[in-house]
Nucleic acid binder design. Structure first.
Lengths: 346, 346
DNA sequence: CCGCCCCATGTCAACGCTGTCAAGAAAGCG
DNA sequence: CGCTTTCTTGACAGCGTTGACATGGGGCGG
């Protein structure tokens, strides 16, 4: 109906205009906008007509000044991997938009000195006047932050928390099961000499991936132990880990890196060592991030619905009523691409 | 001085509290906060002491309701490449933070039908009540949007605009010169058979890179024409372009892809064709995005200070007084890594 | 048929800050 | 030394919305 006909520069209709045009009181307009009960259908219609005729959009500043809500969701990042961050952000953004909320993004840098970092983090949270926060790893497991939020009565939803899953609403996938499905995939291809590239020590989700992977193989009856080398979720770390695995000891026929960046690094190490993926060696990652399709061959990995997780987290945060503290589990899926294949017969 | 001592949940000090503690009027506090003239040093000190004692932070909602500013900068994206977007965002964010501004991010999707896209874009701009906008390509060259902003008297700064450089404040690098420096690098290594992978047709910056590259070679006296194949700034596009260049006709000894993603694709195509980079063929990109260090060998490329561009753009927007419409030029730098080397003697 | 309660709607004072205007103090000038 | 100008400070009314409360009409039990 309403054309993009708002006309003159900077002239915004106010609630007053709507009320006058609809012939009702200010408060009634407010009621319609906020979907409050005790509004007759007729009144609602009149108001809605006036709103769209005037192309009225409520003024957020006035709303938050008068009311108790700010209509802002805070998204907190620390040390972002660009792809992950972008995807989360996109999902959260869409959910905010659907709920007429705005998104405020803040970065903290945990590599700063702890005291400074903490001061900044708590300052950010207490001064930004958001209606709630969405936390991503590793902030999800920062006990100081969680304590502060709880103490202040600020709502928050965590994405893929590793600690105290029952402490707050959260969304995540079953990392262990997901890694297990990858383990079965490699097993079924015929791989028996396997290795894992671990994640950062404090990243507990990475540890769960490792555990799920190894447990699944044990269950399948893998004869020999899985080799494990450290990694740090980065491409360089992947190169180092891959190099280590290829140089010393018996060479694995398949390597599972606990995220895609590491896996890409492992593939680079293989190329350096003159091995062809997947003919000579299989490599698999985890996340299905953008890099999984920016390497050749395309990476076999586990897809986490990252954007969807962001969307779900924001929806959880914005939903009225008492939040559930049980984790909201989303589906992962195994994405078989070109970096895994049956091992050559020796 | 001030500890993170703001104490009880949700209790924020107001200007009233500050005024009372400092023993001055409300308005005086306001003056200090807004750095208005005509404030004695003594008064300023008293107020500042009270502010930090109370850990006072002005309420943005009230400020924007009462005043004419909203303290929000809008950052508009369309079809974001994750790395580019993240870096711009980071720079803009930091500049906002330095100026006590907040950042609002909005995405539009230009692949939607034109009418819908336009309605959304203009709605976004006119309803979001930002003090100004930062535009990134390709939004920088959307004439409908620019007209609307100008007509509405809304300030904006463009990052790397391609059209009508004098129309608004903008920040950019000299794409042609940057590509030329890459051309000279390849020339000096001894390459004489060169090829370019182009960018999306409408991306004019990509065209400028191509032009600068070719012009520099012509000036150096390159005996034969540079081969050109289409690309679309994506990894897949790079693979296709690379494959095309390697299959038909005389094989180039060096390939310049007009962005890093394409370059990574070209490298993948080389690997598929059994060629080794840089021994058999050199590859160079443009952007120095994150992918340049997520491939092996690490990519030789041109560094655009993307984050800095975001920072500069926001600073320009927030600076008081009449903005300059001459482009704000930032420095690029040639980043020589491992993907380029002297060609083998035939 | 009366009184009570509930539903629909309205009135009005905040919310925390800035813009306008006024007033007092200090400084400049002849 | 008195008058004007300039500098410094303050009083007060909104900004556009919501929350608390008031009001009046209709349904329902007794």
């Amino acid at each position: 109906m309403s054309m993009s006909e708002n006309g003159r520069a900077g002239e915004h209709a106010t609630m007053d205009d709507v009320a006058r045009l609809a012939g009702v009181s200010l408060k009634s307009v407010s009621r319609v906008i906020n979907a409050e009960p005790h509004v007759s259908a007729r009144l609602r219609e009149k108001v809605e007509a006036a709103i769209s005729a005037l192309n009225y959009v409520p003024d957020t500043a006035a709303r938050s000044l008068a009311g108790s809500r700010t209509f802002i969701v805070g998204l907190l990042f620390d040390n972002p991997s660009p792809n992950y961050t972008m995807n989360i952000q996109k999902g959260v953004y869409e959910a905010c938009r659907a709920n007429q909320y705005h998104l405020r993004i803040d970065n903290v840098d945990s590599s700063a000195p702890r005291a400074e970092y903490e001061a900044r983090l708590l300052g950010l949270v207490s001064n930004s006047r958001c209606d709630g926060f969405i936390l991503t790893p590793p902030l999800t497991d920062d006990v100081v932050l969680l304590d502060f939020l709880d103490r202040s009565g600020i709502r928050y939803v965590r994405i893929s928390p590793a600690l105290q899953a029952q402490r707050s609403p959260s969304v995540c996938i079953d990392d262990a099961q997901a890694a297990a499905s990858l383990a079965r995939h490699l097993w079924e291809l015929g791989h028996r000499k396997l290795a894992v590239v671990l994640g950062p020590e404090r990243h507990l989700a990475a540890a769960r991936r490792r555990d799920g992977f190894i447990a699944a193989l044990a269950e399948l009856g893998l004869p020999e132990p899985v080799r494990e080398v450290p990694g740090n979720f980065s491409f360089e770390g992947g190169i180092r880990a891959g190099t280590e695995l290829l140089q010393d000891g018996p060479r694995p026929t398949a390597i599972f890196a606990t995220n895609d960046d590491s896996a890409a690094g492992v593939m680079a190490a293989c190329a350096q060592a003159g091995l062809r993926v997947p003919a000579d060696i299989s490599v698999a990652g985890f996340d299905d991030s953008w890099i999984a399709r920016s390497v050749w061959p395309y990476l076999t990995t586990v897809n986490q619905p990252i954007e969807e997780m962001g969307y779900a987290a924001a929806s959880l945060l914005l939903r009225k009523g008492e939040p559930q503290n049980t984790p909201h589990l989303l589906d992962y899926s195994l994405v078989v691409r070109d970096s895994t294949a049956a091992p050559l017969r020796a």
